[in-house]
Design a protein around this nucleic acid. Structure first.
Length: 401
RNA sequence: GUGAUAGUAGUGUAACAGUCAGCACGCUGGUUUGUGGUACCAGCAGUAGGGGUUCAAAUCCUCUCUAUCACA
């Protein structure tokens, strides 16, 4: 109990160091389920699991925090069931911090789907109060509002929850982007009001982040940064289709919003991390937290990250014929259990034979790779030589493959 | 040895004598962003061989080869 009281009065985020040659930062977040050192790459575990891995694997990888998804968990198995288990941590037997996404992104991603019509009705419709959508599982109708998205996240019990937002596609005209942004701002306030009714549903404090939108329009991004920063959020996220998808645009967006976001709150780019280099670029522009499905999804399809210093490649496709007889580990310098125990030829064979362990061993490697890179980045920031690390990963000639 | 049946990418199959011989697996690459747990995109590869009939043959005729079955 004393511990809990201690947590209560400790600041959520402490900025520990700023790199002298860039905007890179090192910090720490305190939650009831443990501390999270930043910069941090957060593993995506949409459906209460990091695909192909279990809690033993995650513990061995020293994963600091994982994500869950409000949309998916609401549809299946439902927040009430998880609530009855005492929350997501107990349900999935994960003792460390969890962040849940609010479901706002699904409004965007479902809306983009080609088969956006089901029974001649749109899969998603947005109004001022919320979003009505159809389940991708069984077509049943559901509705999220800012208040319900927060209530669901209270029941799920993540340490960090996200305000409900609308992520507009880059193709949306400026007028619509502005309307959606203003809607997101209203939903941000409503999310906060709903959250403040019950900030510790399971007996420990849940922190809440607001999300900046505004697509690729500088004045909208600045307005959104100002608005969201003015609210009583514990952290600030930067959302949008371009963020992560287009790193050049992402850099611009970060440079617009960075001077506006308070320094003493964690900065979170949602969806960044297709490539290890993208994480470093985001860090360079002042970001503390990221999440991305890419490292795990790429792993499941045989795309494995490698140290770029040797052959200027950031990843290899282990299913390529040239690896059939390659007895080297995926990456000579990698300390992950996959690289310590298995060869490229073996991984190649497992993929070729469509064995499930191919996915698991590859996922372990890619996750270790990302987490290790973040540990290196943190050390570099603390030593004021982050730009050296950045150079190694982002020389001009570096190609994705 | 005699007879019957059958030979279409590496494998399994589709195509009335009439589009550029289709499909699946396979193989070779590529893609992946607040998840797609086997996905998506592109490419490779074939009428057993030789003659003949026909405006036109995978398709009809004939020989050779091969396979399977039946009979000595």
């Amino acid at each position: 109990m004393q511990n809990r009281l201690l947590w209560w009065h400790m600041p959520f985020f402490e900025l520990q160091h700023k790199d002298k040659n860039s905007q890179a930062r090192a910090g720490i977040m305190h939650t009831n389920h443990g501390d999270i050192e930043t910069p941090v790459f957060m593993l995506v575990g949409t459906q209460a699991t990091v695909k192909t891995l279990d809690q033993t694997d995650l513990a061995n990888l020293a994963a600091p925090i994982i994500l869950g998804n409000t949309y998916h968990l609401h549809l299946r198995p439902g927040e009430d069931l998880i609530n009855n288990f005492g929350g997501l941590h107990k349900f999935m037997n994960w003792p460390k911090p969890i962040l849940t996404d609010s479901g706002g992104f699904q409004v965007f991603s479902l809306g983009l789907q080609k088969n956006a019509e089901l029974d001649n009705k749109k899969l998603v419709s947005i109004d001022e109060d919320g979003v009505t959508f159809r389940s991708h599982i069984d077509g049943s109708r559901h509705r999220f509002t800012a208040e319900s998205a927060i209530e669901i996240q209270h029941k799920l019990g993540a340490d960090i929850i996200m305000a409900f937002d609308e992520c507009t596609p880059d193709s949306a005209p400026e007028k619509y982007v502005q309307e959606a942004m203003e809607r997101t701002h209203r939903w941000a306030e409503q999310s906060l009001v709903a959250h403040q009714k019950n900030t510790a549903h399971h007996g420990y404090r849940q922190f809440i982040f607001g999300i900046i939108q505004g697509s690729n329009y500088q004045h909208l991004r600045e307005a959104s940064a100002k608005y969201i920063s003015g609210l009583d959020f514990d952290g600030i996220a930067i959302g949008g289709e371009s963020v992560g998808y287009n790193m050049s645009a992402t850099k611009d967006i970060l440079d617009w919003v960075n001077p506006i976001i308070p320094e003493n709150k964690p900065h979170y780019t949602m969806g960044v991390g297709l490539s290890p280099a993208d994480l470093l670029i985001a860090i360079e522009h002042g970001v503390d937290m990221f999440d991305c499905v890419a490292p795990t999804r790429l792993a499941r399809h045989g795309m494995l990250f490698v140290d770029p210093t040797e052959d200027k490649k950031l990843r290899i496709n282990i299913t390529n014929a040239k690896f059939a007889k390659d007895l080297n580990p995926i990456d000579k310098n990698c300390a992950c259990s996959t690289c310590q125990n298995y060869s490229r030829a073996y991984l190649h064979h497992l993929f070729n034979a469509q064995e499930m362990s191919a996915m698991r061993l590859s996922t372990i490697h890619n996750i270790h790779f990302m987490l290790d890179l973040m540990r290196q980045a943190r050390e570099a920031i603390l030593a004021d030589n982050f730009t050296e690390l950045l150079k190694k990963w982002t020389p001009n000639v570096l190609r994705v493959q």
